[in-house]
Structure formats: structure tokens, C-alpha cells
């Protein structure tokens, strides 16, 4: 099923990346990345493991600094931000980590409370509870509110991870391998959740994945990354309408898998 694109505002770019380079020692990870994400758009960054996809979103959120190039997010020039401005930007971003990164020592409720309490010091208990219930309801896990992360399944952890980012009402969502390690049914649930988040919370998103089903289900646009560069950017179907051997083998390998 192809997604509708009526909700995208092509006049308002929220992420503009230009000529981005990053290396770790001798390993050149990103070699000149250009990407623009528009308001309300879901862009999937597709590629094999180790091609630098996660490095890209870590630079968008300011967790890593680029060697050269610009990363502009919601009008902030990320690499040059001071600590205060970076925190201001991060409150507008939601980052869903590959392994969910739930705080082990806290219950689901405390995991969700944590960013909210730390960032809004004068929040009433009632408003706090309403926010928690709203996002847990959105991810369909209201019943897990008092469970510890260790008591949750992989799919549930992913959903709680997404809920924890949604509680801050972000404008941009960054998903790092949202379906990695999940069975096909749970993956489909996560894909549906990503689309539902986009529609309900009007977020723009970058989804990092190597899963073609996820890319097709969630992406308005797909950027195919190979060896630290985008070799093709466009709709899911246009990406694979190519004679490029590397892209075709990626496609075939995914479905053989």
C-alpha cells in the first residue's frame, strides 16, 4: 500500500543537510550527504548495516559532530549550537533508538515521566498523568504502565521507546532501525504506529532501516545509501526501478531473507 502525501508541506523544509562528511579514524563513513526533509514528510534512509545511516541521525540530534558540511534542523545550525540551544532543539526532536534505550531501573511510567519532569519543572501531577496516559494509549500499551522494561517484549519496548519520545510532543521523529529484531507481525504493528504517529502528531520523520517492508510502509520518500553516499532518492518504486547492480542485489537479498 502506497502512502498518501497530502499532509506534506513542500514549502517548509525542517531538515536541510548539505555536503556532510564524517569519518572515524581511517574509516570514511559519510562522504558528501545532501538531504532535505519537509514538514510532515517521512523520509526513509535505506541501506545495509555499517553504511553510516545511524551516524547521520546522530548528527541531526547533535550526538555526533560532522567533519564538514551543514546540518540545519528547524532553523538551528546543529554543529555550532551551544549546550543551551542544543537542549532547546532536542526538546523538539524525538529519537527512537534501535534497542529502545529504556532506562532499566525505572518502570514504564517513570521512563515516560523522566524527560517531562526534567524539562517542565512546574507540571501538575494531573497533567503529567494525562500526558503519560495519552501517549501510552497512542502506542496501545496503557496496561503496561507499571511494568519494568525487563518484563516487556521487544515490540513492546520499541513502542514504549516511541511513547517516551512522543511525550515531549516533538516536531521531528528520528527512528533508528525501528523493526530490527522483530517478527513480521510486530514489525507491521511498528510500521503502522510510525504512520499513525505521523498522522496524529503531525511529525516529520527520518526512518533508518534496512527493512524494505518498513521502508515501503512508512516512507513518503526513500534515500538509498551505499558506501556513505545517497545513490538515489525518490519514491520506493522509483528507487528500485534501476539497473544499478548494488541496488538490485539489496532488493533481492531482502526478499530472499
Amino acid at each position: 500500500m502506497q502512502k498518501e502525501k497530502g499532509h506534506i508541506d513542500y514549502n517548509t523544509p525542517v531538515i536541510i543537510i548539505k555536503d556532510l562528511y564524517k569519518s572515524f579514524g581511517d574509516n570514511d563513513v559519510l562522504k558528501g550527504i545532501d538531504l532535505t526533509v519537509y514538514k510532515g514528510e517521512n523520509v526513509v534512509v535505506l541501506g545495509r548495516s555499517g553504511t553510516g545511516k545511524s551516524v547521520l541521525i546522530k548528527m541531526i540530534s547533535g550526538l555526533l559532530k560532522p567533519d564538514s558540511g551543514t546540518v540545519n534542523v528547524l532553523g538551528y545550525d546543529v554543529p555550532s549550537l551551544n549546550e543551551k540551544k542544543l537542549r532547546e532543539l532536542r526538546m523538539k526532536l524525538g529519537f527512537s533508538f534501535q534497542n529502545s534505550a529504556l532506562y532499566d531501573s525505572m518502570t514504564v511510567r517513570e521512563n515516560l515521566e523522566f524527560p517531562l519532569v526534567k524539562n517542565s519543572h512546574h507540571l501538575a501531577k494531573k497533567d503529567l498523568n494525562n500526558s503519560i496516559e495519552r501517549v501510552l494509549d497512542a502506542v496501545g500499551l496503557l496496561q503496561s504502565i507499571n511494568q519494568m522494561p525487563s518484563e516487556l517484549s521487544g515490540g513492546q519496548r520499541k513502542r514504549i521507546g516511541i511513547a517516551r519520545t512522543l511525550i515531549m510532543q516533538p516536531q521531528i521523529m528520528l527512528y533508528d532501525e525501528p523493526t530490527a529484531g522483530l517478527d513480521p507481525i510486530t514489525s507491521t504493528e511498528i510500521n503502522n504506529l510510525i504512520v499513525a504517529v505521523q498522522e496524529k502528531f503531525h511529525t516529520s520523520s527520518i526512518i533508518i532501516t534496512h527493512d524494505l517492508t518498513c521502508a515501503k510502509a512508512t516512507g513518503d520518500r526513500v534515500a538509498m545509501m551505499l558506501d556513505g553516499q545517497f545513490v538515489k532518492v525518490g519514491s520506493f518504486d522509483s528507487i528500485f526501478d534501476t539497473k544499478d547492480e548494488r541496488i538490485n542485489s539489496f532488493y533481492e537479498y531482502n526478499f530472499i531473507q
Binding site: 526538546m91 523522566f114 517516551r164
Partner: peptide, 18 residues
């Protein structure tokens, strides 16, 4: 160390917590 390798420290940072 385990918080670092499971990205819990990064998760704190990106949620605006120092």
C-alpha cells in the same frame, strides 16, 4: 558502562536532560 552501550545515556541527552 551498560547505560552507555545500550544508548541510555544518549537517550537522556536527546530528550533534553543533561
Amino acid at each position: 558502562g551498560s547505560m552507555k552501550v545500550t544508548e541510555q545515556i544518549d537517550a537522556m541527552d536527546v530528550s533534553g536532560v543533561n
